[in-house]
Amino acid sequence: MGTELAPTTYRVTRADLLAYAAASGDHNPIHSDDQVAAAVGLPGVIAHGMYTLALAARYVDEYRGEPGGIVELSAKFTKPVVVPAGADGTEVRVSGVLEVRDGVETVSLTVTCGDDRVLGNPKAVLRG
């Protein structure tokens, strides 16, 4: 059955995306420029999928109380996280269910923005 972990909501702003681009080296302008995003058919500037996946990992770290405990992490990028300009940006909500099988802890995550599940089957396996 598993244990439900309390959800956490993370605010995501354009400033966060700029910081992530600088730290990760992914400077695709769809994460910063409205015109470029519109030109490729997006509803607006979107977060890096990897930024959202990093939030999922952060959530698991926060549950554990320390970083570095995830041995496996995976997800599909199913829907974009659109980030409006301004200090409000948007919000990404993460929740999880912890299961233990054969002594191995696995957290199955749910990551949403508005009504959309933005990650498909996000999952973290923890260090034993």
């Binding site: 600088a22 996946l53 952060r58 770290d61």
Partner: peptide, 24 residues
């Protein structure tokens, strides 16, 4: 430190990298 700060990941100096850091 820059990657941890950008993702809001708690990390002590000298500690392990955030989980998704190898994407770099």
């Amino acid at each position: 430190a820059a990657f941890a700060a950008a993702t809001g990941t708690s990390r002590a100096v000298g500690g392990p990298a955030p989980t998704t850091f190898p994407i770099v």
